[in-house]
Design a protein around this nucleic acid. Structure first.
Length: 561
RNA sequence: GCCCCGUUAGUUCAACGGAUAGAACAAAUCCCUUCUAAGGAUUAGAUGGGGGUUCGAUUCCCUCACGGGGCACCA
């Protein structure tokens, strides 16, 4: 929030309406820095104007020009004010209203029915949820929609395979369904007749064939029950689960709209929208009369615009669908939907294993359940070695292990830039040291442990009189980082990059641990000394920010571990 | 063939066109009679090749090499 204040003073001082104020990577260059002096205007003159600004001098103690940059240092008063603010606002610290009155729809998770929940969909789920949490915290009216893959030719494959093997759909498991799918699509690659049969089954489904419908419903039920287990375990709640099938009766409208706007045209027996020479056409109806994923995506946009009137729709879907979304967005633009709404595709990278892509068809996928289970085993193993383990009953132990195990998996996913491929290997995911979820959780647990030992009642406000003394290096560094929290959240949301928040939290935790090891927080002889109170306040604030930040990432922080 | 994306330390990853390219793991050395050592301190180590734009390029443009994804009737 100091950022906004400095920015507005800077705009006045430099007589411009846009400035770039950044948090320099190197703290030796101040708390904020601008390159405006390098771009236009005279740094000296801007600085002179800035020093005249009274509101600025309350929060900034030093302005320095170095190599053309203008660097700002927050005053002690400002840093202490911020510390008090954290103690007062607690879980609300960092909240913003930049999103007030604006709606964002986030399409995420979206697994394909009849297949086990893959690690790829885990990415969409975890990143999507974090982005959802971030936007909500920043005041946006946020809507999450799980766009389930429960329609389309892939379903034809399932139906055809079930019939071929005369499986009883009532007793089928998700594992068997996936096996059927893998086996069938493998054979259909070489066998055109099988392919045709699958297409025919999808046609029957779209034509409301009774048998096809029946099986479809059962398969959905089985899949959803399985997914719900995973969502429960991962602590994921998605507002809506409309799914592709929901748009079955809403596509005709889109098709006639496209026709009315003279966008749709017949081509090679199919109905398409020409998207220009840079993109393949958008296929609305295939030559066999069935619809496509894209038609459903367009119907979904129409539906979402009418229902929520969002200013932004975010799709958290794998990068292999980049071209598809370019087509969708282009078609949406042609249909006149992009005037008040923008569209973003967070194209998450692949999850590689041994540097190679996993594939359902090739059967090289790792089961998500196995991963989660193994993560918790590992967390349990480490927990047994922990100092606090013996004082904790088995019920609480279980909870902690779950939080740590799941947290490790989620953090591993979130710490990477969404668009980069991540190399999934057991060693790094179970490396619970270093830049990892458990490291952050552990740091949080440390803060809580100290707070519990402090014997200062939490309600009583801490006396921060000690700030009048010279802060030591570690204290100063923590206070400065703590003041950046909100700017980091805004930055992470704007860039659709939870990894920015991860880096920040890791940095905070590292700085706290350094502080912890160098300085005694609770005075041994007098736990309520001025010094102890001040350091305890920093501890409380660090704990608050760590906990809140982790929560935004969808990771729970245990009090002890 | 065309279109996207990537190539940063031994490894896995960061860095809105900015300052001395940050971490973690692995390696080496050190710190538990003190608030949780799942911790801390120190050392060594990197922008694929070649051009260009810029006061300034890991970042933008061109090109080459390598890797990945995708290219109307799958999602």
């Amino acid at each position: 929030m100091y950022k906004k204040l400095i920015e507005s003073s800077l705009k006045k001082a430099a007589k411009v309406d846009k400035v770039e104020l950044e948090i320099p990577a190197n703290p030796a260059y101040g708390d904020f820095s601008t390159n405006i002096g390098l771009k236009k205007g005279n740094p000296e003159e801007i600085k002179k104007n800035l020093t005249k600004d009274k509101s600025l001098s309350q929060i900034v103690s030093k302005i320095e020009i170095k190599e053309g940059f203008i660097n700002f240092w927050l005053s002690k008063e400002a840093l202490i004010d911020n510390l008090e603010k954290i103690l007062k606002q607690k879980d609300n610290y960092g909240k913003d209203e930049i999103g007030k009155g604006k709606c964002v729809v986030i399409d995420y998770s979206s697994p394909n029915v009849a297949k086990r929940f893959s690690i790829g969909h885990l990415r969409s789920t975890v990143i999507g949820q974090a982005v959802y949490n971030l936007y909500t915290f920043l005041g946006f009216d946020t809507v999450g929609d799980n766009h389930l893959g429960d329609w389309g030719t892939q379903f034809g494959i399932i139906l055809s395979a079930i019939e071929e093997k005369s499986f009883n759909p009532d007793s089928i498991t998700l594992n068997e369904l996936e096996e059927l799918y893998v086996d069938y699509s493998k054979r259909a690659k070489e066998n055109l007749a099988l392919k045709e049969k699958a297409k025919d089954w999808f046609k029957r489904l779209e034509d409301k064939d009774k048998k096809a419908r029946q099986i479809w419903e059962i398969v959905n039920k089985i899949s959803l029950a399985e997914y719900q287990k995973i969502y429960d375990l991962l602590d994921i709640k998605i507002d809506y689960t409309y799914g592709e099938s929901f748009y079955e009766d809403k596509m005709a409208k889109i098709i006639s709209l496209a026709k009315a706007k003279k966008l749709a045209k017949k081509s090679r027996g199919a109905l398409i929208i020409d998207l220009g020479k840079d993109l393949p056409p958008a296929m609305l109806i295939k030559s066999d009369g069935t619809t496509t994923y894209l038609t459903r995506d367009l119907a979904a946009i129409d539906f979402r615009l009418k229902k929520w009137n969002p200013s932004l729709i975010i799709y958290e879907v794998g990068s292999e669908q980049k071209l598809h979304f370019r087509q969708v967005f282009k078609a949406a633009e042609l249909l006149g939907w992009a005037k008040k709404t923008s569209f973003v595709h967070i194209a998450h990278g692949l999850v590689l294993i041994g540097g190679k892509k996993m594939s359902t068809r090739k059967g090289t996928t790792i089961k998500l359940e196995d991963i989660l289970e193994k993560a918790m085993d590992k967390a349990a193993e480490l927990f047994e070695k922990a100092k606090v383990a013996k004082d904790i009953d088995s019920e609480e132990k279980k909870e902690i292990i779950k939080k740590v195990g799941i947290g490790a998996i989620k953090y591993f996913d979130l710490m990477h830039h969404p668009e980069s491929d991540i190399n999934f290997d057991w060693n790094s995911i179970f490396n619970l040291k270093g830049n990892s979820g458990p490291y952050l959780q552990y740091t949080y647990a440390r803060t809580q442990s100290i707070i519990n030992k402090s014997q200062i009642p939490n309600k009583k406000s801490l006396d921060l009189g000690a700030w009048k003394m010279q802060f030591n290096k570690e204290e100063l560094s923590l206070l400065r980082i703590l003041s950046q929290y909100q700017d980091v959240l805004v930055n992470a949301a704007k860039n659709y990059s939870p990894n920015i928040l991860c880096s920040y939290l890791f940095n905070l935790a590292q700085k706290y641990n350094t502080f912890y090891s160098k300085h005694r927080i609770l005075d041994i002889s007098d736990k309520s000394s001025v010094m102890s109170q001040f350091r305890l306040a920093i501890t409380v604030a660090t704990g608050t920010v760590l906990k809140n930040g982790l929560l935004l990432l969808g990771i729970k922080a245990p009090e002890k571990m």
